[in-house]
Design a protein around this nucleic acid. Sequence first.
DNA 1: CGGGAAATTGACATTAATCAAACTTAGTGG
DNA 2: CCACTAAGTTTGATTAATGTCAATTTCCCG
Lengths: 251, 251
Amino acid sequence: MGSNIEWLPTQVPCGSCPLRVRQEFRDFTEVELEFIKGSKRGELHVAKGGTILEEGAANQHLYTVLSGWGFRYKTLSDGRRQIVNYAMPGDLVGLQGTVMGEMQHSVEALSPMVLCIFERAKLFMLFEGFPQLSFDVTWIASREECMLDENLLAVGRRTAVEKVAYLMVFLLSRSIKTGLLGRSGVDIPITQQHVADTLGLSVVHTNRTIRKLVERKLISWTDGGCRILDAERLALIARWEDPIPRPRPFL
Amino acid sequence: MGSNIEWLPTQVPCGSCPLRVRQEFRDFTEVELEFIKGSKRGELHVAKGGTILEEGAANQHLYTVLSGWGFRYKTLSDGRRQIVNYAMPGDLVGLQGTVMGEMQHSVEALSPMVLCIFERAKLFMLFEGFPQLSFDVTWIASREECMLDENLLAVGRRTAVEKVAYLMVFLLSRSIKTGLLGRSGVDIPITQQHVADTLGLSVVHTNRTIRKLVERKLISWTDGGCRILDAERLALIARWEDPIPRPRPFL
DNA sequence: CGGGAAATTGACATTAATCAAACTTAGTGG
DNA sequence: CCACTAAGTTTGATTAATGTCAATTTCCCG
């Protein structure tokens, strides 16, 4: 088997970035685009299961997810693992390293991923020359914080069934917002172990809980991935407070 | 009883801010200082138990903690509460509101607090004119994210004893970094209910767990507050990975 | 066809939640 | 100054939720 992660020269130029075409992202000005272009150092292609960042390591780069799913996690010294969040197209990966010196968490690919590589050193230049972009970075960090608050509430205060229901709605919501929803839904590329490690449960109990939701036809669990069948009822079970975003219309 | 929260005109001018004298904060330039001064709208004095921000509300302001302790929390519709983090002197409060429109969490005072009030509308001006300050804001958001990751790991994957030990070391560490440590330690102004709501435990079980640590002389729990007696052993129990910061020397 | 990762199941152990009550302390008003 | 109250802590008894262990099964992939 070859390397499961490799650094390639830019193949998707920023000028025609598939993400920026989407409604959910704001338009860049010419200068901003130039700057971003100039900071891009290439692309990282990572196979499913590949490690993008590792806890404890220092890393010179900052990444943006172009495609694929990943997850961010921490571990205790005896191996217990906690997934703290997921990374989807458009997400920024590695910002914390800028602040903390070395990474406090690892990032792994759930499916084949492509990430844009940026020089971390350019970040301060971005703050000096591009107020709007700087604000965007803060915006992104703040949004991440908000998701972590939600996850903390789920892990700390919801029951097992509520937790699983919550995670499903959470991932569906994010998929919709990111424009990943096909006409037949999304395939969420996670295993039950991931669910367990996200929610602070054991795999066995996670399995039994998932089974219940499958029996009630709220989700389906097919070979290495799952699908949401009834988001509304799941949201009710999870006591999800926000409206589930509507999928944007396709042309 | 009078109002437990009131807005007063500036009494602590930014020029002689007691926080900026401390080693742990970087120096501002003259212009930066002027800008900050110009953005300050007054001070918020909050009694113990007072609510500074409320989930679901929109708020025009951004705050900086000048003194006192507070906590940030979310609730489920049936009242279950999860404390997501604590706020201590120097912390920024309310940044999320800028991004999300309305607050996704509440903030309450654990002890009498004083906060500086800033106009949120000025934030974008800050990004336009003060790259270093903008970077600082991002730095702060990123640090918060890092703490949330840690808390999530604790709530999701540690046992009850480990959890309590973790929280104690976490709060001690932050106290030390914030320069709150007197020569006899810190009095942490929380109740066992707060501990429970931070760690995702019931009060009863929290009490039993705390009792064990008290018996082992690792902490002491006195009327409405607690003290850390043996940080090293607590850190070991919690599998705390980082060195506990040394208290800075006093003159 | 064989190997391995993921999912599933049953039996059992353990942790933590719940319920209910008593106790302690600080603060309040008479 | 003292009874009274409320908030916080503590305890015991019981129940429910979740974890652990150990197989077994399923299914993908080479």
